[in-house]
């Protein structure tokens, strides 16, 4: 029983990370048709900057963690918005080339991080409580899982509120459904592009700082390794669907944990298998609309 609880909550924590990456990917894809390979780099950069911030402020205080999260979110948002404005926008409506540009950016930025911070993982510290465990139903759960889950839920809530109650949110929801009709109502939908990139970048940035606590280190490969699973989550959930991304994040991560424990470390393979099955049975994903 305690193992099940531990796997479940750890899975939820990992799912929270997947969601922080996948939510942005899914929104960006839904609105713009762009698959953003540079998303992992936004995450990695935020993780490094968050780590530097926390280090400068004394890593074991809660204030430093909060500052790291803020810096991570801001860095993610700024870099993402800059990417959209400087690179993606020039290739308006050319989806393949937009994907290629993000591929180039991903390769170049990871190499740059290698150059700046080195290829070895940097082990990090946080508030002492995060490294401790809490006992639930006999399972000793690392506390950072709770932080991850709480923040991911908060981010989900904020994005939902933003989408529901702001004009940009309205434009984004409409644009995901039918972008050309949004322009035919006299709205410059490109501004919404920058906004979704910034939101996605901020979520990934927060994810980066949290990921460094979940794994206990920062490395230039951090974003790339999460990105592949976030892609899988996005496809399983249905490209462009925020609820789909949320549900699929949890399903994929929990499944991965259980398979790793009970099926001899086959978590990654089981996830790929799940992807294959979902695509065979329901090619548009769990929550995807009919094409």
């Amino acid at each position: 029983m305690s193992t099940v609880v531990l796997l479940l909550i750890t899975g939820l924590g990992l799912g929270a990370l997947y969601f922080l990456v996948a939510s942005g990917l899914s929104l960006i894809y839904g609105l713009m048709g762009v698959l953003n390979f540079a998303h992992g780099s936004f995450l990695t950069l935020a993780a490094f900057l968050g780590w530097e911030t926390a280090r400068a402020l004394g890593a074991d205080s809660w204030g430093a963690l909060a500052a790291a999260l803020l810096v991570g979110a801001a860095a993610g948002a700024l870099v993402a918005a800059g990417t959209e404005l400087l690179l993606i926008r020039r290739l308006y409506e050319r989806h393949i080339e937009q994907v290629l540009v993000t591929v180039g950016l991903a390769l170049a930025s990871v190499a740059l991080f290698d150059g700046i911070w080195g290829t070895d993982p940097q082990f990090i510290r946080g508030p002492a409580w995060l490294a401790e465990t809490t006992e639930i139903l006999g399972a000793r759960i690392p506390n950072n899982r709770f932080l991850l889950i709480a923040i991911a839920i908060l981010v989900l809530l904020l994005i939902v509120l933003f989408l529901r109650f702001t004009r940009y949110g309205l434009i984004i929801r409409a644009g995901v459904e039918n972008r050309s009709m949004v322009t035919a109502l006299g709205i410059d939908v490109r501004r919404a592009f920058t906004v979704v990139f910034a939101i996605g970048g901020a979520a990934a940035g927060i994810g980066g700082v949290l990921a460094s606590h979940y794994f206990g280190y920062v490395s230039p490969q951090l974003g790339g390794s999460l990105l592949i699973f976030a892609f899988i989550v996005t496809v399983i959930g249905g490209l462009g669907s925020l609820p789909g991304a949320a549900v699929a994040s949890v399903v994929v991560a929990v499944l991965q944990q259980f398979a790793n424990f009970y099926l001899g470390g086959t978590g990654d393979l089981v996830v790929v298998l799940l992807l294959a099955v979902v695509l065979l049975v329901r090619p548009r994903g769990l929550f995807g609309r009919a094409a």
Partner: peptide
């Protein structure tokens, strides 16, 4: 020094430039 000592950084940048300006 840092950018120049990372071949992938240069190749990635070159790639972006080709996509943008040399389809």
């Amino acid at each position: 020094r840092i950018p120049l000592s990372e071949p992938l950084f240069i190749l990635g940048t070159l790639f972006i430039l080709v996509v943008l300006f040399l389809p």
